[in-house]
Design a protein around this nucleic acid. Structure first.
Lengths: 109, 109
DNA sequence: CTATTATGCAACTAAATGGTTGCATGTCAA
DNA sequence: TTGACATGCAACCATTTAGTTGCATAATAG
């Protein structure tokens, strides 16, 4: 899961995922057209995405087609993000209660 | 949003969020007890989390209480992650169709 | 007032990161 | 077969990052 978070923290890599979202199965060359860095730099980013299993490559002759795999994103949500989704966790409401001197479980002693 | 992704990519910072999830409003010193690095290192991590608005500090005398703010996580999901949640985007099924020679919209030409 | 406690600030270091350039390899087309 | 095209590999560089140590400041306790 660490590899997925690492992969997502770079904006260029998130852009690559967005590009594959709108047009799946693109080659390295095609993806390069939408970024301002060299082909090798894009290739490295794709390697990181592949290592996180977010992109699955398929060789077709001399072309390498890149396919988006959203499964790790789903896992990130299910196993980490979803537990923070409870609105009652909202810090501001808790702060308000703290400032009101209203002691409760989640407060510091 | 970039700040939030950056904040999340470090496992120590995710652990801090988890610690605040289980016990909100902890001081720097309390949080340090659960990590193996120096107080200053933890302090830096908390600064990153504050910059991303994931942690909201509240000074109480000489103690700084740290409160979890899950709102940016919700935003990450709503504005970025949620669009990848459609199962039909699954790369493997697309690859299968590609390999079956079944041309479709989402394919490369 | 003095000690101790909780935190902040600044400088430094090692390692990771994001990018480059140059060259090699394999596939397709004429 | 030859040349162009798509990609990979490796070395290198600059910046960021994650951590350290040392010292400063402010609040509480005795």
């Amino acid at each position: 899961m660490d590899a997925v978070f690492k992969a997502l923290c770079d904006p260029s890599r998130r852009k690559l995922l967005d590009l594959l979202y709108t047009h799946n199965g693109q080659t390295l060359g095609e993806l390069c057209e939408h970024l301002t860095m060299t082909r090798q730099a894009v290739s490295k980013h794709l390697a990181v995405l592949e290592a996180a299993n977010l992109v699955i490559p398929l060789w077709q002759g001399r072309e390498k087609l890149h396919y988006l795999n959203p499964a790790p994103l789903q896992e990130i949500y299910d196993r980490w993000l979803s537990k923070y989704d409870r609105p009652q966790l909202d810090a501001l409401s808790q702060l308000k209660q703290t400032l009101e001197g209203n002691p409760q479980e989640t407060n510091h002693e």
